[in-house]
Simulated assay, not measured.
Amino acid sequence: MLTRAGIPLFGLRDLVTNGSIVSWGMWLILQLDHVITKILTDGKYPFFVRSDKVERLNEYDFDTKAILVPGDGRIGEIFHYYNGKFALHQRVYKVDNFNGINELFLLGLFKYSFKEHALRLNAQGTVPSLRLPMFTNWSISVPMITEQERIGVFFQKLDRTISLYDHKLELLKKVKRSMLQAMFI
């Protein structure tokens, strides 16, 4: 294993390909080859598609803990973390089997450093899209698992705080609009 200043580097270069399954290191990236068309507003299971919005279905593909990365559109901006039963769109990558790496730590790395890497490798077409080399050519420094856990929890708390402030900002904007409308009626 490569190291940088004593910190192991996990490279995504060592691929083992089996159909649409690509395993790298200790995780699995999976791209589904089917499209599910029975989207429901009140479906039992989350259906992760290529956007922030999570749809619903009454059937699922997986029952696991995973980071889900849309392969088209706003690459490097949308990441979902889910633990349980869920379904995936054909252009959503699933990263799971977190042996030796904390999933929240890896999610933080995806959110805060993967976009720059992916855009550097993107051959811009009509729609930006991820390809397997964008994962396989991404090397990450990985500290001890206890440090990863602390960093992962920190990122999770930071994301929650940001979400709360975003929600508060939206509420304040609504109050402002209401006050402006009341002033000019």
Rank of each mutant, 00 (worst) to 15 (best):
L2V: 06
R4P: 00
P8W: 00
F10D: 00
D14L: 13
L15P: 03
T17E: 08
N18G: 08
G25Q: 05
L28K: 14
I29Y: 12
Q31I: 03
D33G: 15
H34N: 11
I36K: 15
I36N: 15
I39F: 11
L40P: 03
T41S: 14
G43T: 10
F47E: 00
V49H: 15
D52K: 14
D52Q: 14
D52Y: 11
L57D: 09
D61F: 05
D61S: 11
F62W: 13
D63F: 07
T64C: 12
A66Q: 02
I67C: 02
P70T: 01
G73W: 01
R74D: 10
R74I: 00
E77Q: 08
H80C: 00
Q90D: 08
Y93T: 01
K94W: 02
K94S: 11
D96R: 01
F98H: 02
L104W: 08
L106Y: 12
Q124W: 04
V127K: 00
S129I: 02
L130D: 05
L130Q: 13
M134F: 09
M134E: 13
F135L: 08
S139E: 05
S141D: 08
T146M: 04
E147M: 05
E147N: 04
E149V: 15
D159H: 03
R160K: 15
L164I: 10
D166W: 09
D166C: 12
D166E: 14
D166T: 14
H167L: 12
E170D: 11
R177Q: 11
R177F: 06
S178G: 11
M179C: 11
M179P: 00
L180Q: 10
Q181H: 06
A182T: 04
